[in-house]
């Protein structure tokens, strides 16, 4: 395992007299993993994301991305190139007047020659399956398509990490699925590291690892099966458990006992069958 990001004892607040939004946060991100960050509204997830690519700087502690410290002024651009963020609102991050212009935006910023840009663009729109829309204007695209264009704009820069900051929360179920599917393919085929900030614990259940945040602190961290064992704690900090888990918990209260935690519908059905066969 290779460590890509290391956050060390980071505290942050937006204004001096305000309370800390992040308190002594420490975490590390490994190459090639899908890390989910969950937490209630205002728990500091977006703030953390902005610290990870140098949009914000820590008040205390350090953020290291592949060895670059975001405190060094020269490192900022290296960090921004390595860590891309897909934001929540598909409309408010579309800079260009067409798909091609938008994907090019980051490349233009890096001063890449036009020929090479064209190569990178055609390569990355293919990966998100938007190659037939190059000349399309943003207001003619669906939310999911816009988010895929945003992803293309980021991977064109060949980053090591893509952060999805609730990137699917404004999309319809179909759009959500197409965006997540795209990211899963990128992870599988390109070995992309993904940090997914989400309210959707069902999605988080499919991650390699989960970090739980509450009121600016990391309160839990681990494999989905381990984190979801603490269902009460998750509910207490205001998170909705995945539906299959809710069903299982309701059944357990009624006296039914299960061997393992069911995080997906499939697992729940299997457990129910096993239970049926045993009794």
């Amino acid at each position: 395992m290779e460590e890509l990001i290391s956050v060390q004892n980071v505290s942050f607040r937006y204004q001096e007299e305000h309370p800390y939004v992040l308190k002594d946060v420490g975490l590390s991100v490994q190459k090639g993993e899908w890390l989910a960050i969950v937490g209630h509204n205002g728990s500091g997830k977006s703030t953390l994301a902005r610290l990870l690519n140098g949009l914000l700087l820590p008040e205390k502690g350090d953020v290291l991305v592949e060895g670059f410290n975001s405190r060094d002024e020269e490192s900022i651009w290296e960090i921004r190139r390595r860590v891309g963020i897909v934001f929540q609102n598909p409309d408010n991050q579309f800079v260009g007047t067409s798909v091609q212009d938008d994907v090019a935006f980051g490349l233009e910023n890096s001063g890449m020659p036009r020929e090479k840009m064209l190569e990178r663009i055609s390569e990355s729109v293919k990966k998100v399956r938007m190659e037939d829309f190059l000349d399309q204007e943003p207001h003619r695209l669906s939310g999911g398509q816009k988010q895929r264009v945003a992803i293309a704009g980021i991977i064109a820069l060949r980053p090591s990490i893509v952060i999805l900051d609730e990137a699917t929360s404004m999309l319809d179920p179909a759009g959500r699925k197409e965006v997540l599917q795209t990211m899963r393919e990128l992870k599988k085929e390109e070995g992309m590291t993904v940090i997914s900030i989400t309210h959707d614990l069902e999605e988080a259940a499919r991650a390699d690892r989960i970090i739980v945040m509450n009121a600016g602190e990391v309160i839990d961290e681990g494999l989905p099966v381990d984190v979801f064992k603490k269902g009460d704690m998750l509910e207490k900090i205001g998170l909705d458990l995945p539906f299959p888990l809710q069903v299982q918990r309701a059944l357990r209260e009624k006296g039914y006992d299960f061997e393992k935690l069911t995080l997906s519908q499939e697992e729940l059905v299997n457990e129910l069958w096993t239970f049926q066969l045993k009794s």
């Binding site: 651009w77 934001f87 408010n92 991050q93 910023n109 001063g111 890449m112 064209l118 704009g153």
Partner: peptide, 27 residues
């Protein structure tokens, strides 16, 4: 205003730092 703020953030996140040394896709 919200859009403007978001957009500025997104542009910065994608490495925008003014016109200096920038290339253009439009030919």
């Amino acid at each position: 205003f919200k859009r403007a703020e978001d957009l500025a953030m997104a542009m910065e996140a994608r490495g925008y730092r003014g016109g200096e040394g920038r290339t253009s896709i439009r030919l």
